[in-house]
Amino acid sequence: MIKKTLSLSIIVILITTSWGCKDDVLPKPSSYLRLDYPEAKYANFDNECSYAFEMNSDAIVKKGKDCDLTITYPKMKATIYLTYKPVNKNIDKLLRDAQKLTYEHVIKADDILEQPYLNPNKKVYGMFYQVEGNAATNAQFYVTDSTKHFVTGSVYFYAKPNYDSIMPAASYIKNDMQRLMETLKWK
């Protein structure tokens, strides 16, 4: 009986110590995909159109009709669309259309931040819009000299809008768009 109790006690102790020494099981913290993009290098983009600007040298520019341009980022699956319109006593309509285009995204947007831009030395005036949330575009702008030239720009990704997923790419391209807007000059 003592041998049986001693054997049973030893077995219980061995089982307890072998299972009792394991670490507590803890849930793993959430992980996030890290997207690192190369530091942007900017170069002057000059063409036969009425405006020139600096752009990211990793992007690809294609000219459309009437000095409209597309700036493509193949690695990020995104495109900036630039539209040029001459001002012919219709500046009010052009401004309304540009603002309307931005505020059409208010349904899906969490917030729209407006940043006015004024550069009297180059006669470039405009507005930069940062659209937060699951809207189709995350950044838009317009610039004008208010007498001859009007340019709008907006970025679109080739994916269903999910702000959290495209945030790193959207932030990178937003910086490029601001640089484009701030370096734009009329010819």
Rank of each mutant, 00 (worst) to 15 (best):
K89Q: 15
D97F: 04
P86V: 02
V87I: 14
D68M: 07
K77V: 09
K41I: 12
H105W: 14
D46M: 06
L26W: 08
Q99T: 09
T79N: 07
K63N: 14
V61C: 05
K63H: 13
L69N: 01
A98Q: 04
T83S: 15
D66H: 09
L95H: 06
P38R: 00
N56V: 01
F53K: 08
T72G: 02
K100F: 11
V61S: 03
L82K: 08
D92G: 02
V106Y: 05
G64E: 07
N47H: 08
P74A: 02
K89Y: 13
D97I: 05
T79C: 00
D58N: 13
N44R: 11
N56E: 07
T72P: 02
K65P: 08
Y32H: 13
K62D: 08
M76F: 04
K75E: 08
K89H: 12
D36Q: 13
G64S: 04
L95E: 09
E54F: 06
Y84K: 04
I80R: 03
Y73V: 05
L33V: 15
I71M: 11
F53A: 00
E39T: 05
Y51D: 00
S57D: 14
Y37T: 10
K65H: 11
P27A: 01
K93V: 10
V87W: 04
Y32P: 01
P38F: 01
N44E: 14
T102G: 01
L94K: 01
A43K: 14
L33Y: 11
C67S: 07
D58C: 00
N44A: 14
E48N: 11
A78E: 03
K85R: 13
K65Y: 12
T102L: 09
K93S: 12
Y37I: 15
T79I: 09
Y103A: 07
D68G: 10
P29D: 04
N90P: 06
N47T: 09
K100A: 14
I60Q: 15
K93T: 15
V106F: 09
T79S: 09
A40W: 02
K85G: 08
T102F: 01
K100C: 09
E48C: 00
K75M: 13
N88D: 10
A98N: 06
N56H: 08
D46W: 01
I80E: 07
N44I: 13
N44T: 12
M55Y: 04
D24E: 12
A43V: 15
Y81A: 12
S57F: 03
E104A: 10
K65E: 15
Y103M: 05
I60F: 12
S31W: 05
S30W: 06
D36S: 15
Y81S: 14
N47K: 06
Y32N: 10
N44W: 11
K63Y: 11
Y32S: 14
K63C: 06
D46I: 14
P27R: 04
L101T: 10
S50Q: 15
